[in-house]
Amino acid sequence: MTLKLTEIPRVETITKEDFLTHYFKPQKPVVIERFIENWPAFEKWNLDYIKGIAGDKVVPLYDDRPVQHKDGFNEPHAKMQLSEYIDLLKAKPTKYRIFLWNILKEVPELQKDFSYPDFGIKLMKGLPMLFFGGTDSHTFMHYDIDLGNIFHFHFEGEKECILFPQSETKYLYKVPHSLITHESIDFSNPDYDRWPVLKQANGYRTNLRHGEVLYMPEGYWHYMKYITPGFSMSLRAIARNPKNLAKALYNVIIMRHFDVLMRKIKGQKWIDRKNERAIARTNKLRVVTG
């Protein structure tokens, strides 16, 4: 049995009026296939180009190991020159990913290769972020701390994207005081004997290819798995729904700091307890059939 996932709608291109009416206002995801063909990045951006323009930069790398107190809070698992990392991506599968790399700060030349599209909502121009991954590397299922509207532009290769709206959170084994689900879940091939309540969740999926744009509405959970080596850029707009704005403020001002404090006080026991509570809370919703 597989997850209950609907294919994300696709359009070749879209006007801002149609985007606002059919996707932004109802908060539904969409893939736009041919929206950035006028960007220099559409022709130029591939791993070799990035290596040539930014190969000397030292980048933080993350893998899919479960959160451990000894690793620190959001600390990278390794560091490497970008040129070496791209060589690694092309040579063999690797779990190492680049996560939330701010290109404006590190490589301002890349700003010339793209423009901020007009989707009818104001984008945050200081926060374009790059993400890189190798074959079969993946993120944990998570949502962003600010519950923003995200436009995810993919370059080179292919990646699988699985999304869930916040309404499905109760079925996803969310870890308390965090933005992630239980890290042992493989959302591309879930074990329903271990995670039975996942069968009740309804989500979306698509495979993104070079030049395509995925719109992820406010607070959507997302899991990304690289089918081939590649990279993506995210642009974002703040949440408009007052409930989501309030949740974002709570996450930033209270939840994040409380979690850091409890890690300092209780260490690994706090992390283990949260994971246990994620399982216990969610399994109470299990529907027994047969």
Rank of each mutant, 00 (worst) to 15 (best):
Y215M: 01
D136G: 03
Q200D: 15
Y192R: 03
F155T: 04
Q166H: 15
N207K: 12
E212F: 08
F132Q: 04
K122T: 14
L123Q: 06
M141A: 10
V213L: 12
L172V: 05
F187I: 03
P196R: 04
Y220K: 00
F140K: 02
P196E: 09
I150G: 07
Y171R: 01
F132H: 05
D118G: 03
K225Y: 10
D193T: 13
L208I: 07
W221K: 02
H154K: 04
R209S: 08
T139V: 11
V175M: 04
G157I: 13
H138F: 14
L110I: 11
H177S: 12
K122C: 02
E212A: 08
Q111F: 11
N207V: 12
K112H: 06
E212R: 04
P117N: 05
W195A: 02
K125W: 08
H138G: 04
N202G: 06
G203A: 12
I180A: 03
I162H: 05
M129W: 11
F131C: 05
R205G: 01
V175L: 05
T181F: 02
I150N: 12
K122M: 09
N149L: 13
P176I: 12
T206M: 02
D113A: 06
R194I: 11
F164I: 06
Y116V: 11
R194Y: 14
M124T: 07
Y143T: 01
M224E: 13
K112Y: 08
R205D: 03
R205H: 14
L127P: 00
Y192S: 02
D186W: 11
P190M: 10
K125A: 07
Y173W: 06
H177D: 13
D193G: 11
Y173P: 00
M216W: 04
H142L: 02
V175E: 09
K170T: 09
S167T: 15
L127N: 14
F132C: 04
S184R: 08
H177E: 15
K112T: 06
I121K: 01
F151E: 04
L127T: 11
S115K: 13
K225L: 04
Q200S: 13
